[in-house]
Amino acid sequence: MDVEQLCRDHGAREVTIARDLTEMGERDIATRFDAAIVDLMLGGVSTLDFAAGLRNAGLPFVFASGYSDAEEIKASFPGIRLVAKPYSGEDLVEAVASACGRVSAG
């Protein structure tokens, strides 16, 4: 599934794809994005610290991953949705809309 195109099809003007955490940096994270879709692993590295930074910055996000220890995510990130792969585009769009406090247009 082309997540970038899916986001654009649902109104995203800019989409940033990162293949590893070094592409993201840590400064001013809250001013760089309106929302995020976070895979639990990028380049073999856990993204949980990055996700904690998003949460601390108040940035809406969801996890979308094939690596799914749902209980660990629920315990560490209560209220943050995990969309497990394989997922449909509709599931992902609805999860991001919900994280942003919006109702999905689907």
Rank of each mutant, 00 (worst) to 15 (best):
A70K: 08
E94H: 04
L54T: 02
L82W: 04
Q5M: 12
L40H: 04
G53F: 03
G106R: 08
I73K: 02
D34P: 09
R55F: 00
D91R: 15
I73S: 07
V62N: 01
E90W: 06
G25M: 06
S68Y: 11
A97R: 07
G43K: 03
V103F: 15
Y67A: 05
L92H: 00
G58Y: 07
E4C: 11
G66R: 02
F77I: 06
E14A: 03
C7T: 07
D69V: 11
D91N: 12
V96L: 15
G58I: 14
A18K: 10
R19Y: 06
V62M: 06
T22P: 03
R27W: 01
S68C: 14
R27G: 05
L6A: 05
I37F: 03
G66M: 14
A57N: 07
L59S: 00
L92N: 00
V103S: 14
R13I: 11
A57S: 12
D28S: 10
Q5N: 06
S88H: 13
S98A: 08
G101S: 12
R8L: 15
V15P: 07
K74C: 02
D28C: 10
S76E: 13
A18D: 09
D49L: 15
A18W: 04
D2K: 13
R13Y: 15
D69I: 08
R8Q: 12
S88C: 08
L54M: 02
A70F: 09
F61R: 01
F33A: 12
C100K: 13
G106T: 00
A70M: 11
P60H: 05
E26L: 15
A57I: 01
D34I: 09
F61V: 08
E14I: 10
N56Y: 00
Q5D: 12
V62F: 07
L21I: 07
E71Y: 05
R32L: 06
K85R: 14
S65W: 09
A75G: 02
V62C: 15
Q5F: 03
R27L: 05
N56M: 02
P78V: 12
S104I: 11
Y87N: 09
I29Q: 12
L92C: 04
R27N: 10
L42E: 03
G25T: 05
V93K: 07
L54R: 01
L21F: 08
D9M: 13
A70C: 13
R19V: 08
E71W: 06
R55D: 00
I29V: 14
A18I: 03
E23P: 11
V83K: 01
I80P: 07
G43D: 09
F33M: 13
Y87S: 08
G106Y: 04
M1C: 03
G89W: 07
V45D: 05
D34E: 13
V3W: 07
V96A: 11
A64M: 14
V45T: 14
A36K: 00
Y87K: 13
C7P: 06
I17M: 14
D9V: 12
H10G: 06
A30P: 09
G58N: 04
E94P: 02
A36P: 04
M24W: 12
A84I: 04
T16I: 11
F33E: 02
I80T: 10
E72W: 02
E23S: 05
K74P: 01
T31Y: 04
I17Q: 08
V93F: 11
H10V: 00
T22W: 12
L42Q: 07
R27C: 09
C100V: 02
M1D: 02
H10C: 11
D2F: 10
D9L: 11
